[in-house]
């Protein structure tokens, strides 16, 4: 089949970007979106042009590296599918696909379709864990966890941190990502001691990063490759409201976001 890929090309955060159209003949409907980009890149390299930079690693939908907008939808038209598992048969012969990077103030631009998602790491760093050092653990069966609780925690824990939720949200909100971790740990009995502090700190960091607010419209869940439910956002709000009250006397600090990649400058 034939396709036209219209791709955002920009060399770096300080250079000017533009859309470039690449007509593709002989697209095999069996190939994945990323393999289609591989083929394009191979031909660009052969012509001495610089290939399109895009993130990818596991190519089986679990590492969360890949992701870009395909004609206005994060990860493209197939629900619950990352671009690495999206096969070209979902597109029509002759179609034009517009490929754009995630757009968010909290995801500084890097190159072509690549953005910097370290904001997510900083949100986890701000409390997205249970503080248990190695060697401290009681027997695995010492704390019973009901099957339903465990299943709900797993639903939330399935998040791959790809950033599609932020990209799809008209407000650029990271509520689904942050809510997923707060819900995962807040549901489990092991996560109770730090529940208030975790919610308050993670919400504060999410704010610090410059993400927008949640308007509960569900675009995030709609594009989420792991179909994380909107319920996790309610869970975050609940834990935050209670936590903000109970932790009202404690000073909460956040980590300054950085977009620089020069590690030597610290």
């Amino acid at each position: 089949m034939k396709l036209t890929l219209t791709i955002w090309r920009q060399k770096g955060p300080d250079s000017k970007g533009k859309f470039v159209s690449y007509p593709m003949d002989n697209v095999n409907p069996e190939m994945s979106m990323l393999e289609c980009l591989d083929v394009l890149n191979e031909s660009l390299a052969e012509r001495g042009e610089e290939p399109v930079a895009f993130e990818h690693d596991c190519r089986e939908g679990i590492c969360g590296s890949c992701g870009f907008m395909i004609s206005g939808v994060a990860h493209g038209p197939q629900p619950a599918t990352t671009v690495c598992q999206l096969t070209m048969r979902h597109f029509k012969d002759g179609e034009e696909l517009v490929l754009e990077p995630w757009r968010s103030r909290a995801f500084p631009f890097v190159k072509d379709l690549v953005v910097d998602r370290r904001a997510f790491d900083r949100i986890i760093e701000s409390g997205g864990y249970i503080s248990v050092s190695t060697g401290n653990a009681p027997d695995g069966n010492a704390i019973p966890v009901g099957k339903e609780e465990s299943d709900r925690a797993m639903d939330a824990a399935a998040c791959i941190g790809c950033g599609a939720c932020v990209a799809a949200c008209p407000n650029g909100s990271a509520a689904l990502f942050t809510g997923a971790k707060i819900a995962h740990l807040g549901i489990l009995p092991q996560g109770q001691p730090e529940r208030d502090r975790r919610a308050v700190r993670m919400v504060a960091q999410m704010h610090e990063e410059g993400f927008g607010s949640c308007t509960n419209i569900g675009e995030c869940t709609g594009v989420c490759p792991k179909e994380i439910p909107l319920e996790v956002i309610a869970r975050m709000n609940r834990d935050y409201l209670g936590g903000a009250w109970r932790e009202r006397k404690n000073v909460v600090t956040t980590i300054a976001p950085v977009s620089d990649w020069d590690f030597a400058k610290k």
Partner: peptide, 14 residues
């Protein structure tokens, strides 16, 4: 034991 304490949601019986 360590992973359970960290909150890894292993499959559970009822």
């Amino acid at each position: 034991d360590q992973c359970v304490a960290q909150g890894v949601p292993f499959a559970r019986e009822y």
